[in-house]
């Protein structure tokens, strides 16, 4: 089947998509966007998190046909090419990246958390909010402390966020 969708602001089309393909496969293997990572394929680890109509989902569990004619934003779409978005910058500064495999999914999920809280004029998320928001993103390297630091840092800079 043919799947047409909007990815990072551009209309994209993939042909000969098999019904059993995931949105993640389409993004990585057909549209050359390898930022979203393929790990558990069960919705457990969050490394494939993308925004689907502005809402974070696990792209590994979205059937390609379900994404047709919808808007997808991947980690590649969160900042202009060659630049870092505020969440990416905070992760770098806080030392929240080790092997980096979980990082793209975390960046997307944190971007959404901050957009819904401080970015919407609400107080910055507390530690309990951050932990719950990131419960679906597994990291085998960092022990999460530096990731929490990065989220707090990004939240503290929110007035300059778009």
């Amino acid at each position: 089947m043919r799947v047409t969708l909007t990815v990072n602001g551009s209309q994209r089309t993939a042909d000969d998509v098999w019904e059993g393909e995931s949105l993640l496969f389409v993004l990585r293997e057909r549209l050359a966007l390898p930022g979203s990572k393929n790990a558990c394929e069960q919705g457990e680890c969050g490394s494939c998190t993308v925004l689907l109509d502005d809402v974070p989902v696990c792209a590994c569990l979205v059937a390609a046909g379900q994404a047709a004619h919808r808007r997808v934003v991947t980690v590649e779409g969160l900042a202009p090419r060659g630049e870092l978005g505020p969440v990416q910058q905070a992760f770098l500064e806080a030392g929240a990246v080790q092997c980096g495999f979980c990082t793209p999914g975390l960046i997307v999920q944190v971007h959404d958390l901050l957009r819904r809280t401080a970015g919407a004029g609400l107080p910055p998320p507390g530690d309990a909010d951050i932990r719950e928001a990131l419960a679906g993103n597994l990291c085998r390297c960092t022990g999460y402390e530096k990731i929490l630091d990065a989220v707090r840092l990004a939240a503290s800079r929110l007035p300059v966020m778009p």
């Binding site: 919705g43 969050g46 998190t49 809402v55 974070p56 989902v57 696990c58 569990l61 979205v62 999920q109 719950e132 928001a133 419960a135 679906g136 993103n137």
Partner: peptide, 9 residues
């Protein structure tokens, strides 16, 4: 139940 991403789906 589940995680944020899963509840969104």
């Amino acid at each position: 139940g589940a995680s944020g991403q899963i509840r969104n789906m």
